[in-house]
Amino acid sequence: MPKPDFGFSFAPNRALELSVPLLPEVQAVLEAEPSIRACMACGQCAAVCTAGVFTPLAFYRLVLQLWAGEVEVVGQRAQHCMLCGKCQMTCPRGVNIRNALLLMAALLPPKP
């Protein structure tokens, strides 16, 4: 008996589930570059980011999304980075942003 069409459908709760343990690949990125933990999302990196002018790339936001396990988005956004290093120069917490972004960009499976 095919499922009746009600004209609408339910969707799971959009809330982030923090209790879900970190994904292994996220764990790997954090271990490879522990300074990511020092990010306090102050937004200084996004302020100087050239790629950020043209794309939604903002490193502090990628860190948050990394913790939330949104590996797809993080991977795509990180690929826009030119690695110019302005963010790393201004970061008040000394996060190795360039290395972090390289690791994040590698989160996505390589293009066929």
């Binding site: 809330a15 982030l16 589930e17 923090l18 209790s19 936001r61 939330a68």
Partner: peptide, 15 residues
């Protein structure tokens, strides 16, 4: 517990 991660603009739940 319930809160919002205001930096991501999304509600969040946690045990």
């Amino acid at each position: 517990v319930k809160a919002e991660d205001t930096l991501q603009g999304r509600p969040l739940h946690l045990q």
